[in-house]
Design a protein around this nucleic acid. Sequence first.
DNA 1: ATGGCCAATTTTATTGGA
Length: 256
Amino acid sequence: MPLSIATWNVNSIRVRAEAVLAWTKEHQPDVLCLQEIKCLDEQFPREDFERLGYRVETWGQRTYNGVATLSLSPMEDVVRGLPGDEGEAQRRSIAVTVAGLRIWNVYVPNGQSVGSDKYAYKLEWLRRLREVLGPSPRERDVLVCGDFNVAPEPRDVYDAGKVADDVLFHADVREALSELLALGLVDTFRLHHDEAGAFSWWDYRLNAFKRRMGFRIDLVLASEALAKRCSGCAIDVEPRRREQPSDHAPVTATFG
DNA sequence: ATGGCCAATTTTATTGGA
């Protein structure tokens, strides 16, 4: 049975509720992973999505971060956060199981600037994600999707020379992403597209979207067994063209 | 030229994002 999984950093669900609801109604992904909901669990517009047939699991926080996973089918074994999170930790991940498929929804830290404390936290967070996934991608069907805040390769940024020291493309974070992939995960977009210039995020400043100055940092990673059944992966840039958009575009992968 | 925009809160500035 075909299954579609979408991931979208919405940059505040309260500002974007109408746009996200319209997109969800139009595309009806089986599972929708949202990042940067920027609200408490009780502020999430749960009922609006339930009216579209979705179950809703949130891991929100005030002001920053926050993730939510929505599913047309029941979700089991919901795990909020990562091992090692402190009591007041940033809320950046939620894992659920849908039809036997383990789905991690992640919002990897941005890192602010190379060499900063936040950059160290980004690398440490990626290490903890790798540890919690452990050998699972080789043992079962696993998806890890979300905003990774890392562009994997030169063809995933608008100008690899210009952004070599960018916090989204620096060698250190790309190495950390490589180590995650080495667990047995596949970047599903690259199963179906070889071209450069396909991006999922554009800075609000600099007129970056119109100038095609983007990064592909929103990814759907699939365990190798699952990747064999991946029938497509696409970035939908339409929502980014509209009024008051998120700075990220949604990415949808489908499995046969 | 190293900034510009956007969202939330601490709101007429500041912080963080990416």
